[in-house]
Structure formats: structure tokens, C-alpha cells
Amino acid sequence: MITEIVEIRIKSKMQDEFIAGVEKSKELFERSPGFQNLELHRQIEDPEIFLLFINWDSVSHHMDMFRKSPEYQEWRGNVGHFFADTPRLQHSKTQLAY
């Protein structure tokens, strides 16, 4: 399992609409091969910044399958217009968990 971590700055006063767009996209992720789960976190110090954590079976499931799918295009249509700038994306693999 890998975790996709995306830091997203949302345009001012559009945070609630962004959250609704993520909720609207739930089924897009659920029907995507290799998807495990998703968490959306809102930064306390700067409420315009969100962290999206998505667990996938592999980087390939995210980058090669989901990102090239119609579901990805619909996902971006649901949330992309709320982005204040380009999201910062990275992948991680859990080394320790307690």
C-alpha cells in the first residue's frame, strides 16, 4: 500500500464548496482499481490549506490507472476550479505505525 498525499490551497471563501466536491467524488474513487480509502484534513493554522490522503494498492494504481481514467477527469471537474494554485503531490510508504 502507498499513500498519495496532496497539499491543496483552496481559493478564499470556497472551502465548504471544495469539501462538498470531495464528498460528491466519493464514488469515483470507490470504483477505481486499487483504491483503498481517502481522508481529507483541513489545516488549523491556515484553513485554506487541505491535505488529502488517499491509500492505493500501488503508485501505478494512482498514476497509471486513476490519473488516466474518466473518473480522474470527473474528479478534477468537481474540485479543480477551487484550487488557488497547483496542488503539491507526493507518494509515501508507511515505515512505522503505532
Rank of each mutant, 00 (worst) to 15 (best):
K13Q: 13
E17N: 13
A84G: 04
A20V: 10
D46S: 05
N37D: 11
R9T: 14
R67P: 08
N37E: 08
W56F: 10
G21E: 04
F35T: 04
E7I: 12
R76L: 15
K24V: 04
E30C: 09
V6L: 14
R9A: 14
S58V: 11
L96T: 06
D16A: 14
I5A: 11
P70S: 13
I54F: 06
V79T: 15
Y72I: 02
E4W: 09
H61D: 15
E7H: 11
E30H: 06
W75Y: 15
E27G: 00
N78H: 02
P33E: 10
Q90V: 11
L28D: 02
D46P: 01
R76Y: 10
P87Q: 03
E74T: 14
F29C: 03
R31Q: 12
K11F: 03
A84T: 03
K13N: 13
V59P: 07
I8V: 14
T94M: 09
Y98F: 11
S32D: 01
F18Y: 15
F18Q: 07
R76K: 13
L38M: 13
R9I: 12
Q15Y: 02
D64P: 00
Q43L: 10
T86K: 15
S12P: 00
L51F: 15
K93R: 11
V79S: 04
E45A: 10
P33Y: 07
D64C: 04
I49D: 00
D85I: 01
H91P: 05
E7L: 12
V22Q: 11
D46C: 00
H91L: 03
Q90K: 13
V59I: 12
D64E: 15
S25M: 06
L51E: 10
D16Q: 14
L28Y: 00
K13Y: 02
S12M: 08
M1E: 10
E17S: 14
V22F: 00
M14I: 00
F35Y: 14
N37V: 00
K24A: 11
S12F: 07
D64Q: 10
I5V: 15
K11W: 05
N78L: 04
L96S: 04
E45Q: 08
F66G: 03
P70D: 12
I2N: 04
Y98K: 09
Q43W: 02
L40N: 05
N78Q: 01
P87N: 08
E39N: 13
Y98E: 08
S69G: 02
L40W: 05
I8H: 08
E71Q: 15
H81C: 02
V22W: 01
A20S: 14
V59E: 14
L51Q: 12
E48W: 00
A84Y: 06
V79D: 06
Q73R: 14
H81R: 09
N55F: 01
P47H: 05
L28C: 02
P33I: 03
L89C: 07
G34T: 09
E45D: 09
R88M: 05
M63N: 08
H91M: 08
R31W: 02
D16S: 14
Q90W: 07
R31M: 08
W75N: 01
R42C: 11
K24R: 14
R76D: 06
F35W: 13
T86A: 11
K68V: 07
